[in-house]
Simulated scan of single mutants.
Amino acid sequence: MSENTSFAFVANLLNVNCNLPFKVLEDCYFQKADSFQIDKIKKYFSDSGHFTQLFRFNLSPYELVYVEDTNMLQQNSLTGQHLEPQDWKYYVLNFYGGISKVYDLIMAANLVEIELEFGLQFIYYKEIKTFGIQENPTYTFNYFHEMNRSLPLSESIDDTNLQDIGSIYQYYQQLDEIKYPDIKEAINMLQELKHIPHSSKFKVLGLFTII
């Protein structure tokens, strides 16, 4: 039951081309968010102030699809259309375990072809039977601010992309930090780049630094 399972919200707007739920690791499944999880995600958006204009209508980018507006004279003009609830694009990674497990999954997800952004982690504490939200405020602000500022585009993923997360996670777990310290440092630096706004030229400079 999702009411007592930790989950990470996948911030990307995704077109998923595989059967769900998909087993990424033991006790770790990628799937569509259920109504309980969507309520928690939307409450976070409402409280945080992200997507203020959309939330005036109790909407988020995950409930819209953008199509060409044929009524506009301007070329490539797009308009948002409401999706039916069963087609909403809220996806989560359900998992058992603490924040350390999802942190390593975040690192692994940074290295796949379609980089999945686990923007928020809802950790279930069974001792007190409640959820806590884990986030990096700067990184979260940068990601959702960019999504709010520009027209968000959907990315397509399939079972291969999800399998890659599990495989890279296992390699990451087995990485000998003493023998290969530069690899671990490069992976950490890639994560730290998310503190820099997406539109900043310093982000490009940071990528060259890692290389």
Score class of each variant (00 low, 15 high):
S200K: 03
Q173E: 08
K23E: 11
E127L: 11
F57D: 13
V102M: 15
D158F: 01
Q170Y: 07
M1G: 05
F7L: 06
V65A: 00
L193G: 00
Y29D: 00
G132E: 12
P197H: 03
L190C: 05
M107A: 13
Y169T: 03
I38T: 03
E68H: 14
K23P: 00
P137L: 05
V67N: 11
Q31W: 01
Y62N: 05
H145V: 04
L105W: 11
G206A: 06
Q163F: 11
N15K: 14
I133N: 02
Q170S: 11
S77T: 15
L175H: 02
V102P: 08
M72Y: 08
I196M: 07
Y180A: 08
Y90G: 07
E26C: 01
A8E: 04
S48G: 05
L73Y: 14
K42R: 08
E63V: 01
F141I: 06
N71Q: 09
I123W: 01
S77E: 11
L207D: 10
F51I: 03
M72T: 15
Y125I: 14
S150H: 15
Q174R: 05
L20I: 05
M189E: 15
Q174L: 10
G80S: 13
V204L: 09
V67H: 10
I41P: 01
Q191S: 09
D159T: 02
L64N: 04
S77Y: 14
Y171L: 12
E117H: 12
C28F: 06
Y169R: 07
Y180G: 04
F118D: 05
K203C: 02
E185I: 01
C28V: 12
N148W: 11
M72Q: 15
L111R: 13
H195C: 06
P85R: 02
E115T: 14
I106Y: 14
K184H: 03
Q173A: 02
Q81M: 11
Y90L: 07
V102E: 09
N58H: 12
K89C: 04
V102F: 12
K32D: 03
G166N: 06
F122C: 06
K23Y: 01
Y169V: 04
S60H: 00
F208T: 13
I106W: 14
M72I: 13
Y44F: 15
L207I: 10
K184D: 09
P85M: 01
N71M: 06
H50N: 12
F144S: 04
E192G: 00
K23D: 01
Y172T: 00
I41K: 02
S167Q: 13
L93N: 07
V67P: 02
L78R: 11
K126H: 09
I99K: 10
Q170L: 12
F57C: 05
I183P: 04
T209F: 07
S6L: 02
Q86W: 02
D182K: 02
V102S: 13
Y96M: 09
D39F: 08
R149V: 10
Q37S: 07
D27Q: 11
L54N: 02
H195T: 11
H82T: 11
D87T: 04
D182S: 09
F9E: 05
D47A: 09
L14I: 00
Y124C: 09
L83C: 08
H50D: 13
I106M: 15
